[in-house]
Design a protein around this nucleic acid. Structure first.
Length: 565
DNA sequence: GCCGTTTTCGGCCCGACTGTTTTCAGTCG
């Protein structure tokens, strides 16, 4: 079972344990393990049983959970889960998805009224039977009914690129409101996660919150105002994206930014550090007893617990707190560090112009080089004509655009023995051979990994793409990232981080593995038009989440060497 | 169930909000 599946089982376990009334700390341990496994770049099954890099070395996973995780990964089942399901119907888990329904109420409703499904819950609520239960009145009953009706509309996470497009005009509007001081987006948007659930905006305002709240509520893209209070305004946009805006006093702005940026796990860890120093840390500031000792600037919150400033992208409780304490945080790669990109073209009569456009745009961005991946056909039977036209376009653009190194590239599939699938001679004038497994989701994980390892060792390829199963909506085909990264480092092969919005899932974990073993990352916008070059930023975001500094990323070099055997 | 410059037991983050209460439990982020 893949990591996502294992994480799902652990979540189920946590939910069922919670309904059963197990220790909240035990439940939290299971949820933490689910989160950790879900963020892992390599399959949990491929981790060593003991020693460095072993499962129980991960923070929050001890001997017991490691054993259970291994059992789930190997068999897809878990004895404990089956036991729990015998005592508590699995269908109760569905009730937890309704807003206002938590484990306690689910349990009470099941035990008191025998309700174990959304359908029977809805019936009972309509008949007014829920209020028989202690602690449930007419309002809660109505709220549950509303929750059932609205559950299909519940906001799903959207790609960060879409959120960017939604948020930009709103920020513009709010910034132009008189009396607005600081204005920043917090939350997972600021941490640059690949998807965001909602957008948290924090502002300071000189004369009250009324005017700025009104500015948000009356924005043309708003279809529903959820709340419009003194300090908080919540709206839903036509796209379904929810925007929460909070007005905070200037002296609390840093603490609020820290608090609302999260992640939750990072915040918990920070507050625990505070507790040890007898400090209370919340969204209003850092307190020693009754006295606020800081909170105006985010840096001060970190400093109060003995840490240097942690960039938002790193705040996931993945070791950043220890690193910040020991002054070992990397200097993350900045957008201005980038000097090159990987783009692609398809077969068309206008190849000369398209390549030239891309080259000129790259030069205008200050790039020193550009890898252009040619049309698929060029390495296939009968692709000679396409290949000649592509190479001509490259040569042509070289003469027109100065101070930009253009490299011809090609994407190929690979066989079990590591040999590339390409017509003889078709790669002769290609400097960068990029491997992307065809039909990756139809292959076993072990086969995927083995093929990529064989390709890396063959000495005939320069770059490895992360296999994706894009037709299974954003689901990634798993590979043993650590094994691949180690081999890539040894053989000088580059690991591509694809910046296309639909291929960002888990790219942060992948980049982190590459960085940790010392392999080189190559960001690839895969732009097909000059306007798409800017989306390299999304690849960089994920690399930054993976702790990559400029030296980990090949795009920052002016003249990278593409070694070819 | 995890974890340890208060280490093998006894802790484990914090606050807002809501509905139901009369002092609080449950949910949520």
């Amino acid at each position: 079972m893949d990591n996502e599946g294992v994480a799902g089982v652990l979540e189920q376990l946590a939910d069922l344990l919670e309904i059963e009334g197990a220790s909240p700390f035990r439940v939290r341990a299971y949820r933490g393990a689910a989160r950790t496994v879900g963020a892992l770049a390599s399959p949990v099954g491929s981790l060593p049983e003991s020693g460095p890099g072993a499962l129980d070395e991960l923070s929050g996973i001890g001997k017991d959970l490691a054993g259970k995780i291994r059992e789930i990964a190997a068999t897809g089942e878990l004895a404990l889960l089956n036991e729990l399901k015998e005592r508590t119907p699995e269908s109760l888990l569905g009730l937890l998805e309704i807003p206002g329904m938590g484990p306690k109420r689910a349990k009470a409703i099941y035990e008191g009224l025998g309700i174990d499904s959304i359908a029977s819950l809805e019936k009972a609520a309509k008949e007014g039977r829920l209020r028989q239960l202690k602690g449930v009145g007419p309002k809660l009953e109505a709220q549950i009914l509303e929750g059932i009706a609205a559950r299909a509309l519940r906001g799903k996470r959207i790609p960060i690129s879409e959120a960017d497009a939604e948020v930009a005009p709103i920020l513009e509007r709010l910034r132009n409101t008189p009396g607005v001081g600081a204005l920043e987006v917090a939350g997972s948007y600021r941490r640059r996660r690949d998807t965001v659930g909602d957008v948290d905006i924090l502002v300071t305002a000189t004369d009250g919150a009324k005017e700025i709240g009104k500015q948000l509520a009356t924005y043309s893209g708003v279809i529903k105002v959820l709340a419009e209070g003194d300090t908080k305004t919540s709206v839903v946009l036509a796209s379904g994206l929810q925007i929460d805006m909070r007005v905070v006093p200037p002296e609390s702005f840093g603490a609020a930014m820290h608090y609302f940026t999260g992640s939750k796990a990072h915040n918990v860890a920070i507050r625990m550090l505070g507790v040890r120093k007898n400090l209370k840390i919340n969204e209003y500031g850092v307190f020693e007893g009754e006295n606020r000792i800081s909170g105006e600037r985010e840096e001060d919150v970190f400093a109060s617990v003995g840490l240097t400033f942690v960039p938002p992208e790193m705040r996931e409780d993945r070791g950043e707190i220890d690193a910040a304490r020991d002054y070992k945080l990397p200097t993350l790669c900045a957008p201005t560090d980038l000097r090159g990109d990987v783009v692609e073209v398809v077969a068309t009569e206008r190849l000369d112009k398209i390549v030239l456009d891309l080259a000129e745009a790259a030069r205008a961005r200050g790039y020193a080089y550009l890898v252009v991946l040619g049309p698929q056909e060029m390495t296939q039977p009968g692709g000679g004509d396409t290949r000649r036209k592509f190479l001509h376009a490259i040569t042509h653009a070289r003469t027109k655009v100065k101070h930009l190194a253009l490299h011809a590239g090609a994407t190929v599939d690979v066989r079990d023995d590591g040999s590339v699938v390409a017509e003889p001679g078709s790669l002769d004038d290609v400097e960068v051979v990029r491997v992307e497994l065809a039909n990756a989701n139809a292959l076993e994980e072990k086969v995927r990994t083995a093929r990529l390892l064989a390709a890396i060792k063959s000495g005939r390829v320069q770059m490895i793409a992360r296999p994706t199963a894009v037709f299974q909506k954003e689901k990634l085909a798993q590979i043993d990232a650590e094994a691949i990264a180690k081999a890539a480092k040894k053989h000088g092969v580059l690991l591509e981080v694809d910046a296309r919005p639909e291929r960002l899932a888990n790219a942060d974990g992948y980049a982190r593995v590459a960085r940790d073993v010392g392999a080189s990352v190559m960001l690839a916008s895969h732009a097909t038009t000059s306007g798409e070059l800017e989306r390299i930023r999304y690849g960089l975001d994920q690399a930054r989440r993976g702790w990559c500094s400029a030296s980990d990323i090949v795009n920052t070099e002016k003249t990278p060497k593409f070694v070819k055997a």
